[in-house]
């Protein structure tokens, strides 16, 4: 799977403002709504929060992968960066600075797993995470992702 096929540059946010879990989810869903990828923001927020209630998707190292099966026709991905970090009840307690949000259609399973695998494969590299955190703006973030994506698969 090629990340740049599912992630467009407009879906890269370099400066999330929210500092709380619920707020940051609402902020990211708002952007997806403005991209006309979803109809009902409230429902999508509910679906994402329902998933969080089963256990935080803050997987540690300052990374979270909020995800849900919801009312979308195709996979939607968004990458958000928080400069100050968000308390996300992460597995290791570290505030989250990188969010990779995924929405997948209700009837799909394989797609979701492949996307999670691809993202994790990129993000487990400490230097890559560091580069994303230090990148100047969303254009620079997107360039780094494209480069990494091409070099690994």
């Amino acid at each position: 799977m090629n990340i740049t096929n599912i992630l467009s540059q407009e879906a890269v946010l370099d400066d999330l403002k929210s500092r709380q879990k619920m707020d940051v989810i609402v902020e990211m869903v708002g952007i997806i709504k403005s991209m006309n990828k979803i109809q009902n923001s409230d429902q999508v927020v509910k679906d994402l929060m329902a998933r969080e209630s089963l256990g935080s998707t803050g997987i540690g190292y300052g990374v979270a992968i909020p995800h849900a099966k919801t009312d979308v026709t195709d996979l939607v991905a968004l990458l958000g960066r928080s400069k100050l970090g968000v308390d996300f009840d992460s597995l290791d307690g570290i505030p989250v600075k990188l969010f990779f949000l995924l929405l997948t259609p209700k009837n799909s399973t394989g797609q979701h797993l492949k996307a999670l695998a691809r993202i994790s494969n990129l993000l487990k590299d400490k230097l890559f995470r560091q580069e994303l955190l230090e990148a100047e703006d969303s254009g620079a973030i997107y360039k780094i992702i494209k480069r990494e994506n091409n070099s690994t698969h």
Partner: peptide
């Protein structure tokens, strides 16, 4: 013991 490692397997 690494969540990102295990996720990266993409084991279906």
């Amino acid at each position: 013991k690494s969540i990102m490692g295990v996720l990266a397997l993409g084991a279906s």
